[in-house]
Computed example of a mutant assay.
Amino acid sequence: MVGLDDILAARDRIAGQVLETPVAPSAALGALVGAPVWLKLEHRQTTGAFKLRGATNAVMRMGRVAGVTTASTGNHGRALAHAARQAGARAVICMSSLVPGNKLEAIRDLGAEARVIGDSQDEAFHEARRLKRDEGFALIPPFDHPDVIAGQGTLGLELLEQVPDAATVAIPLSGGGLLAGVAAAMKARRPDIRIVGISMKRGAAMAASLRAGHPVEVQELPTLADSLGGGIGLRNRLTFDMVRALMDDLILLDEDAIAAGIRHLASEGHVVEGAAAVGAGAVLSGQLTSRGPLVLILSGGNIDPAAHAAILREGP
């Protein structure tokens, strides 16, 4: 497993390259929980999502290569494109046809090549692996990589300082890089802290894998939490075991609950994508409670403006 020393080293390595994002209280959600609720505003990160932490740490650790590549649902690709540009390296980001157009354009705006390959994250990964095998690229996956996990864990170090009395931390769960890193950092110093993973009901690969007891493939389906889509890899080396060991509870949300989370956070002034709204959605639907201060990680804000506006029009 990735440990505290790895995460502390990553924090030193990426200092000055990523933002230390603030936390903000949510009185409305706190009233529902009956305890203070803090929002970790990671959607204000330079590339609009937490992924910049892990991508930057991984790029800073790589040697001489032809370029960097990955398969991404959008946010990791954007982060890797930014980190590669900072390092003066070529980047080719492989994505499925399910990735929203605004995320494709954001990657291209950073000077990276965005390749749309097939209808799933797994198909996109085949092209990224080919680039590694045939053209000498460094493959930096979105979650199942020690440097990526350690970089994401720096968010947990910040939370230990910002909300030292946190009782529960709710973390959007997809491939598990964010949860693994944050939980490893926080539980190393606060073993009693409760870690709750939250995902969508439509195509949650980590949830299905945990039920099966080993990594499995699932059909990737359209969802408001599109950043949480994609498989965890049948040969998953790190995040499956770390999530299984470090996560205390798992909550799966339907699409209405995710939309409600997006709308509520907008009412508090936070424009976030569906993946970032799952914590608020879980509180609003009564599925997430805490006996003490609760932290919700707003993991990203890269939502298509038209889609966001449509969600706001639909709701109460």
Rank of each mutant, 00 (worst) to 15 (best):
S199W: 04
S199R: 01
S199F: 03
T223L: 02
I193S: 00
V196T: 05
A225V: 10
D226L: 07
D192K: 06
I198W: 06
G233P: 06
L210V: 06
L210D: 09
G213M: 03
I232P: 04
S227Q: 01
R190T: 08
G233Q: 12
P191Y: 10
I232A: 05
V218I: 15
I198A: 06
L210T: 08
A225H: 07
R190W: 02
L238Y: 15
R202W: 02
A205H: 05
T223Y: 01
I232T: 08
V218A: 09
V196G: 03
G203E: 07
G213N: 11
G203D: 09
M200I: 11
R189S: 13
T223W: 00
E217N: 12
S209M: 04
A225R: 04
R190K: 15
V196D: 08
T239N: 08
V196I: 12
P191S: 10
Q219L: 10
G231R: 09
A204N: 02
I195H: 00
R202Q: 14
N236T: 09
R235C: 09
D226V: 12
K201M: 13
A212W: 04
I193Y: 03
H214K: 14
G231C: 03
V196E: 03
L224A: 10
A204V: 06
R189K: 15
I195P: 05
A212H: 12
G233R: 14
V216C: 12
I232F: 11
L228D: 03
L228C: 01
L234G: 15
D192L: 01
G230R: 01
L221C: 03
R189Q: 15
D226S: 06
S209C: 06
R190Q: 15
R194D: 02
A207M: 05
A225I: 09
V216P: 10
A207N: 06
I193Q: 03
S199M: 05
S209F: 06
A207S: 14
H214Y: 10
G231M: 03
N236D: 11
R190E: 01
L221S: 10
R211Q: 13
A204F: 06
K201I: 12
A212Q: 12
E220K: 00
S209D: 07
R190H: 09
I232M: 05
M200G: 15
I232R: 08
P191N: 12
L210R: 03
L224H: 10
G203V: 04
D192N: 08
M200A: 14
G213L: 02
K201S: 13
G197Q: 11
P191W: 03
V196N: 00
G203W: 04
I232D: 01
G213F: 00
G230E: 11
S199E: 10
D226Q: 10
R189T: 12
K201Y: 02
G230F: 09
R211V: 12
T223C: 04
E217G: 05
K201T: 14
P191D: 10
A208I: 02
A225S: 13
T239A: 08
A208W: 07
K201A: 14
R237S: 12
A204I: 01
G233S: 13
Q219D: 11
A208E: 13
R237Y: 02
G229C: 09
A204H: 07
G229M: 08
T223Q: 01
N236F: 13
R235H: 15
G230Y: 11
G229R: 15
S227M: 03
V216T: 10
V216G: 09
E217M: 11
G197W: 05
I232Y: 09
I198K: 06
V218L: 11
R211A: 13
I232K: 08
